[in-house]
Structures are given as C-alpha cells and as structure tokens.
Amino acid sequence: MSVGLTHYLVVSLLLFCLGLFGVLVRRNLLVMFMSLELMLNAANLALVAFARYHHNLSGQIMVFFIITVAAAEVAVGLALIVALYRQRRTAHVEDLASLRL
C-alpha cells in the first residue's frame, strides 16, 4: 500500500481535532497552548501534503511563514501567562473568572 494524499489529510484532520479537543477540554493554560500549536501544525501538514500533490511550492513557502508566526504566537501567549501568574499565582482557566456580568 502506498501512502497517498488521503492518508496525510486524514492524519492532519485527526491532529486538528485532537488539538481542538485539547483546547476545549484541558484546563491548564500551558496544555491549551500546546493544543493550539497542534492545530496550527495540522494545517502545516495539510499544506505540505497539498504542495507535494500539486507539484508547486507555494504551500511549502506558506508553512515556513506559519512556523515563524506560531513561534511569535507562543512568545506572546507565554508572556501573557507570566503576567497573569505574577498577579494570581495560577495557570488554570477556572481561575479566570473575575470578568462576569
């Protein structure tokens, strides 16, 4: 059996769903960030597979940009966690409940 486009797409969709599930279910902010990264990497995998399938490079170029952007996103996210941790000594979403009606 040869591995084709469909296999890559199924894996990438699975990764995306796993990431989404992680963001929705896990309560620790760091784990939620990792799940967000998983979602972005699912898109990366799909893009690379499609680029190979179409024999053009624009998909792969996009992946390079996405990896860079994802790194910046993590930096900002971790900075936000640090800012929050300094105030409240917590990294759990349940404790983010001071803003309500």
């Binding site: 995306f16 898109a43 799909a46 893009l47 499609f50 624009s58 998909g59 996103e73 996210g77």
Partner: peptide, 21 residues
C-alpha cells in the same frame, strides 16, 4: 488563537483544492 487555527486550516483546504494561494 483558535480562530487563527480554524482560518488557517480552511485556507489550507482552499489551497489544496485549487492548487494556488
């Protein structure tokens, strides 16, 4: 971040179907 991931995955599928960005 979740929105960005959704947008990106949608856009990657558009690229995959059309072969152009």
């Amino acid at each position: 971040g979740m929105a960005a991931a959704f947008t990106l995955y949608g856009l990657s599928l558009v690229y995959g179907l059309a072969g152009t960005t």
